[in-house]
C-alpha cells in the first residue's frame, strides 16, 4: 500500500462516517478511502485530481487512483456515477464529444495523456477497448481481428495470419471459428461477437485492456465465457472493467473502485470492498441498499 501515501494524503478510514442517515446515501465528501493491492510491477495508469465537465455539468470530481500493472481493476457504482466517463477518459474516447473540458492529470507510463502534442492515435494503440454492446464491423471475422494491424498499414499475409490466430486463441474463439474466418462477423452469436471484439482489442498487443460493461448485452452462459477469458488474460494485460454486476466484479477483479456521483469513494482490494467495506456508502451499495 505504499502508493496510497503518494497518491493522496487524505486517506482515512473515517471519511463519510455517520453520514449514512436512514438508509439514504450521503453526499460524497471528496475524500477517497484507499486500500488497494499493489502490483510488483508498479502502476500503469495514474490518474491525479482529474475533473471533467460536459459543458457546464461536472461529471468527475477530483479522481485520483492508479491502475496496477497486470491486475484486473473493476469500476463499480450506480448509473451515472462516471465509471464509463472515467474509462473513456483513459484512451481519450471522450474527445468525440463537443464542449468537453478537463482538469488534472492522467499519465500512462509517466507520459501525460492530455499533454500538448500527444498523438491520440498512438495512445489508443496502447490500449484495447471493448464496448458495452458487441460492435464487430461488417467485414469477415478475419478482417475484424486484423483491423488494428491494417490500420497500421501492415499487409504482410503471414503476420496477419499469425496475429489472427493468436488473438482468436487468446479470446478462446479459435476453435469455434477457425473454419469460417472468411465469413461475415455479423453472423456470429452475441457472445461470440463480444469475444471477437476482445480478440480485436488484443490483436495489436496493447498494454491495457479497457472494458466498458462487456457482458451487459450477453446471456449468463456467454457472460461466464467472457469472465473465464478475463481470468485467462489476467497477468498478460492490465485490465480495467466497468461493470454493473457486483458478483462479476467480485469474481474477476483484484482491485475494485467504487464511484458515486462523480467521485471516487473507495478504491481497495476487491475482497475487502465486498466483505468489509471501509466507507458506509460502499457498504450500502455492495449490500444492495441502493443503486
Amino acid at each position: 500500500m505504499s502508493d496510497t501515501a503518494t497518491l493522496s494524503p487524505t486517506s482515512g478510514i473515517g471519511s463519510g462516517k455517520g453520514q449514512a442517515n436512514g438508509g439514504r446515501p450521503a453526499l460524497p465528501t471528496g475524500e477517497t478511502n484507499y486500500h488497494f493491492v499493489t502490483s510488483p510491477e508498479g502502476s500503469v495508469i495514474d490518474v491525479d485530481k482529474f475533473n471533467l465537465w460536459y459543458g457546464s455539468a461536472q461529471a468527475l470530481y477530483d479522481i485520483s487512483l492508479s491502475f496496477q500493472k497486470g491486475l484486473v481493476t473493476a469500476l463499480i457504482g450506480p448509473s451515472g456515477c462516471g465509471k464509463s466517463t472515467l474509462l473513456r477518459s483513459l484512451n481519450r474516447m471522450n474527445d468525440l464529444i463537443d464542449n468537453l473540458s478537463i482538469d488534472g492529470n492522467v499519465t500512462i507510463g509517466g507520459h501525460d495523456i492530455y499533454g500538448p502534442g500527444v498523438d491520440v492515435i498512438a495512445l489508443r494503440k496502447r490500449m484495447g477497448m471493448v464496448f458495452q454492446k458487441p460492435n464487430p464491423f461488417a467485414m469477415s471475422i478475419y478482417d475484424n481481428v486484423v483491423y488494428p494491424l491494417r490500420v497500421d498499414g501492415i499487409s504482410d499475409r503471414r503476420v496477419l495470419d499469425e496475429t489472427c490466430e493468436r488473438a482468436l486463441r487468446g479470446s478462446a474463439l479459435w476453435d469455434e471459428v477457425k473454419d469460417r474466418l472468411k465469413e461475415s462477423a455479423l453472423g456470429m452469436s452475441g457472445g461470440q461477437q463480444q469475444r471477437l471484439c476482445i480478440a480485436r482489442a488484443i490483436a495489436s498487443d496493447p498494454e491495457v485492456l479497457l472494458m466498458d460493461e462487456p457482458c451487459s448485452a450477453l446471456d449468463p452462459i456467454a457472460t461466464a465465457k467472457i469472465e473465464e477469458l478475463i481470468d485467462e488474460l489476467r497477468g498478460h494485460y492490465t485490465m480495467i472493467i466497468v461493470t454493473h454486476n457486483m458478483q462479476q466484479a467480485g469474481r474477476v477483479s483484484d482491485n475494485t473502485a467504487f464511484m458515486y456521483l462523480g467521485r471516487l469513494i473507495e478504491y481497495g482490494k476487491t475482497e475487502t470492498i465486498f466483505t468489509a467495506p471501509q466507507v458506509p456508502q460502499t457498504r450500502d451499495y455492495v449490500t444492495g441498499r441502493f443503486g
Binding site: 468525440l96 498512438a122 489508443r124 494503440k125 484495447g128 460492435n135 464491423f137 495489436s204
Partner: peptide, 19 residues
C-alpha cells in the same frame, strides 16, 4: 459504436471514415 470501435483500434478519423 462502429466509429468508436474503429477509433479504439487506433484508426485515424480518415481510416474510420474510409473503412
Amino acid at each position: 459504436s462502429m466509429r468508436e470501435g474503429s477509433l479504439a483500434c487506433g484508426a485515424s478519423k480518415w481510416q474510420t471514415i474510409k473503412w
